[in-house]
Structures are given as C-alpha cells and as structure tokens.
C-alpha cells in the first residue's frame, strides 16, 4: 500500500512540475487554448454558430478554441460558470438574447450587463410573420389587422415557449397593431412549422433562413417583417411591410454575441477585440453567414453599439415581465 502511494505521489508531482516549467517563458496572450462557454446544450443553432465562429477565430488568436457547453437552467448555469472563471481573457462567453432575458428576471447571482463587456456581435437574424397558403381570412398585414379587430383573440399565433423572446415580441407587435391574438406556445421550430402547414394555427413567426424554403415553394405566405426596415434583397420578401411601417419599434431582434469579463486587463481585451473583428470580416465567415442570411441586419459593430442593444432589450423584457406578472 505504502509503495503504491509513493508511486502515486511521485507521478502527481511529475505531472505538476512539467507544465510549470512550460509556463515560465513569458509570452504574449494567449499562451494556451481559450474556452468558449456556450450556455446551450450541444446541437442547437446557437451552439453550432458559436462553434463555427470559434473555428474561424482560431486563425486569428493562433490558439485552439475549446467549446464548453453549459446548457443548464436556460443559460444561467453557463453564465455563472463564465463568471466564476478568472478574468484573464481565456474564457469567452457566447450569448443570445436569452441571457438578457434571464437578467431581467434576476435569475443569476449577478447582472450580466454589469459584469461582461461585448467583443463582437457575430450575427444577427430577423423574423418574419407568415400565414399558410389559402388562408381565406387574411393574406396581408392590413387584412390581418382588420380581421383581428373584428374577432379579438380568434387568430392563433405560434411561438417557442411561454414567456420567452417570441412571446415578448408578439405581445409588443400586437399592441402596436392595436389587435389581440392568442399565443400558442410550442417547444421547437419544427413543431411550429408542422402546426402551420397542418393549419392548426394561422400565424407563425420564424427566422428567415429556416422558413425560406417554405416561402419559395409557396406553402407559406409572408405578411410582416419583424425588423425596422424592409428586406427587398430576398425576392420572396419584396414589398412585404415591416413593423416600422406600422409605427412599431424596439422589439428585440435576434443576435448572437461574444463577451468577456469586464475586469479583464485592457491589453488582453484589445487583443481579443481585434481578433474578433478580424474574424467578423473574414471572407469565409462572411460567406457562411450569407448562406444563412445572418448578415442582413448587422447593425451594431462597435462594443458601444452592442451595449446599447443590450440595454434596450433589457428594458423591453423588464417591462414585458412586469406586465405579465412574472416579476414584481
């Protein structure tokens, strides 16, 4: 027993000493692999785009990027993990609007916007409101407003989960249009698409990339774009009104950012910022985004602008949750 313990101890010591010597050489950041904390499980759209971005980022930081999936508690666990890591710039944090949403509910121990600084807004997306082909009640946004005003609550609209981004967006839009519809929560985008194609519901909002094939085939008809400007570059969306045509503004758009802890040293932050913006402008990464239509709404390119987007969304969510009774 003693002998084995001795061997064990020796092995441990050896393992500890070797890398210490390795560390001794002073080098510029980064000297080892970076971790990218993804607050979602493996396999979702947000996970895939973070991994994709990480792949291109490796080229510019010259170190491997290791994705770390922390999908617990709807982004809170990932945030807490990233927060607990030292502020040395080796831990990057991917976030989407869900993190801001959780902050408005004070779900985590600290506030995200007070502890993290944005590096880059990797990609943005926008959603469109569609109805199925052959809907006799309404085919355009104007017809929808007239119909819904005559029959309050009769129009069923689908979204992903209750009290999340879709729900918040839709309640804002409905208020802006002065109508009332009934929100039906589903759990995934595919369920929603099956529901609208099966005519269980009349309206659906979805990201453009995921719904485009159905628009191209004519099975779904776009009626309203959830963004501040019209999108004429996609043929199917030509001439479709956007929400600012109806005087609505300030709905959360869909985006994915990379952030780093606020108290990271400035030199490190600058290196990271440069690497991230280089990746953002990388032609291959751009090509990837174009395929998915993730570049059309790119608005916030500086950290200040990103912070502004976060603050605005925080305000919108806080108001929404107060109205629905989730927070007091």
């Amino acid at each position: 027993m003693k002998k084995t313990l001795r061997i064990l101890a020796l092995m441990l010591i050896c393992m500890m000493i070797v890398p210490v010597f390795g560390c001794a050489k002073k080098q510029e950041f980064p000297t080892r692999a970076l971790e990218m904390v993804i607050p979602f499980g493996v396999g979702g759209a947000s996970d895939i785009s973070a991994r994709e971005f990480g792949k291109y980022l490796e080229k510019y930081v010259k170190q491997p990027i290791k994705p770390v999936n922390k999908g617990g508690s709807g982004t809170v666990e990932g945030f807490e993990y990233a927060l607990a890591q030292p502020a040395d710039g080796y831990t990057l944090f991917e976030l989407t609007t869900s993190v801001i949403m959780k902050e408005s509910q004070s779900a985590a121990s600290k506030k995200f916007t007070e502890t993290f600084d944005p590096l880059v807004m990797m990609m943005t997306d926008f959603q469109i409101l569609c109805t199925y082909k052959g809907n006799e009640k309404f085919k355009t946004a104007d017809e929808l407003v007239t119909y819904a005003k005559a029959n309050p609550g009769a129009v069923k609209i689908a979204g992903i989960s209750a009290g999340a981004a879709d729900d918040c967006t839709q309640s804002t839009v409905a208020k802006g249009l002065g109508i009332k519809w009934t929100y039906v929560p589903y759990t995934s985008g595919s369920e929603i698409k099956a529901a609208i194609l099966g005519k269980e519901i009349a309206l659906v909002q979805d990201k453009v990339a995921s719904i485009l094939p159905l628009l191209q085939s004519g099975d779904l008809i776009p009626i309203l774009i959830f963004a501040d400007n019209r999108v004429d570059i996609i043929p199917q969306l030509k001439g479709i009104p956007c929400i600012s045509d109806y005087g609505i503004s300030g709905i959360p758009i869909s985006w994915r950012c990379i952030a780093v802890r606020k108290d990271t040293p400035k030199e490190v932050k600058d290196i990271l910022f440069k690497a991230c913006s280089d990746t953002f402008n990388d032609p291959d990464f751009k090509a990837y985004k174009e395929k998915e239509f993730l570049n059309i709404m790119d608005v916030a390119k500086t950290p200040e602008a990103i912070s502004k987007v976060w603050q605005a969304e925080l305000k919108a969510y806080t108001q929404f949750y107060k109205e629905t009774g989730v927070i007091k």
Partner: peptide, 18 residues
C-alpha cells in the same frame, strides 16, 4: 418552467431545476 404558462414548477428557487 411550464412550457404553456411560463410558471416555475417545483423548482424550490434552485436555478438548476428551472
């Protein structure tokens, strides 16, 4: 979180159960 009403159920204020 209840998928339909958005209410937290049996989470006992523990984030990991949310």
């Amino acid at each position: 979180i209840d998928p339909i009403s958005g209410v937290q159920r049996f989470t006992f204020n523990k984030t990991f159960l949310v």
